Computed example of a mutant assay.
Amino acid sequence: MNTKIVILDEDNIEQNIVNEAGLVIREGGLVVFPTETVYGLGANALDSIAVGKIFKAKGRPQDNPLIVHVSDFNIDHLVKEVPRIAKKIMNMYWPGPITLIFNKSNIIPSVTCAGLDTVGIRMPSNIIARKLIEAAGTPIAAPSANISGRPSPTDVESCIEDLSGKIDYILGGDKSEVGLESTIVDCTCTPICILRPGAITVEMLREIDDKVYIDKSIMSKPNKDFKPKAPGMKYRHYAPKAPVKIICGDLTKTIAKINEIVQTSIGNKKIGIMATDETKDKYPYGTVISLGSRKKLDSVGRNLFEVLRSFDAIDVDLILSEAFEEMGIGVAIMNRLKKSAGFDIIYV
């Protein structure tokens, strides 16, 4: 398949290009597009055949539901009801990096929701994404634009690497601002529940509902019979080619443990180390890449997937990562790290 690739200037968007990509969606094709979280691989959310192409292109398990992207607040035709708490969240955080789970209407095909009676919906803040949805004239179902299981793409180059030749159209823009997939909140239960942490944190949501909580299953390894209600809950995700191991505990002990592992592996393995600005000079051996500053965890989240992919490019044998405090966006960072490592964690 020949994949058309066009890169847009987000400050000067060529509407004719967006319209062309929108037509591809409307006619049942697949289009990569930027969002503020990560790049997405989109199809007409109401076309079961088109949605099926997403699973094939990504190699995605059929029981992993997709998120439906919209360009405005008019979602009544997509869901059975919009609870009052959901309206409050929408008014505060849409457009933005948060997905809400609703009981779906019959207009949403079963394949889009992996056979569930619920659907996740979000309104991205990225201008190209919203213009594409408007041009398509239909909500767009979209997971991240990568081969299933690999680190999610935060730039168009990563999308080209994974999907060129497998889909119809790649619509590029700037690097993703957030770098982590959207927060997912289940609004079908009381109190509401976070099914995937993200940039909209539990602390932020507790300003709306002080009873909101994080589903305990998302921070631990699920069993094989677990049925996911939202993307990213069941399978190993965000994984580079080399295995990832997390070193968790006191930072001084963490540094010492990483250095110990690297020194005992010299001559046998090429080791990558995911450090921070504060610690990157503490590792005399190994290939060290900083995720950003511990004082600005937003930057760590923004860089996480890009750094994981960087280690693929230099072909390391093992990746060792420092851990982060599970507060605020640190919860989302550790959720993605644990998934990328398959929950391989050394506590010190």
Rank of each mutant, 00 (worst) to 15 (best):
A199C: 10
G232V: 08
E181L: 05
G232W: 02
D209L: 08
S176F: 00
D186M: 00
S182W: 02
R196I: 08
E207F: 01
I200W: 04
I214M: 14
K229M: 13
M233N: 02
D225M: 11
K227M: 12
G179C: 06
D186C: 04
D174A: 14
D209R: 03
K227V: 15
V178K: 03
K234L: 11
E203M: 09
E177H: 12
M219N: 12
D225R: 07
F226V: 00
V178W: 05
T190D: 13
D215L: 13
M204G: 09
K229Q: 12
C189A: 08
K234C: 03
C189F: 00
T190I: 12
A230H: 05
L195F: 00
K175R: 15
C189Q: 14
I200P: 05
E181K: 01
K221G: 08
I214L: 14
P191L: 07
P228T: 04
G198L: 06
T201Q: 07
K229V: 02
P231L: 09
P191T: 08
C189D: 04
R196W: 10
D225I: 12
M233Y: 02
S220R: 13
D225P: 02
T183Y: 05
V185Q: 08
P191Q: 01
P222Y: 05
P197C: 09
K227H: 12
V202Y: 04
R206K: 15
V185L: 10
V212H: 00
S182L: 06
E177R: 14
V202Q: 10
Y213L: 10
E203W: 11
K211Y: 13
E207N: 15
D186F: 03
R196V: 01
E181S: 06
V185R: 02
K234A: 01
A230N: 05
S217T: 13
K229G: 07
C193Q: 14
D215C: 12
G173Y: 03
K175D: 14
D186A: 07
Y213G: 06
K229S: 12
V212T: 13
L195Y: 09
T201H: 05
K216P: 12
I218G: 01
K216T: 13
I200V: 15
D215E: 14
L180R: 00
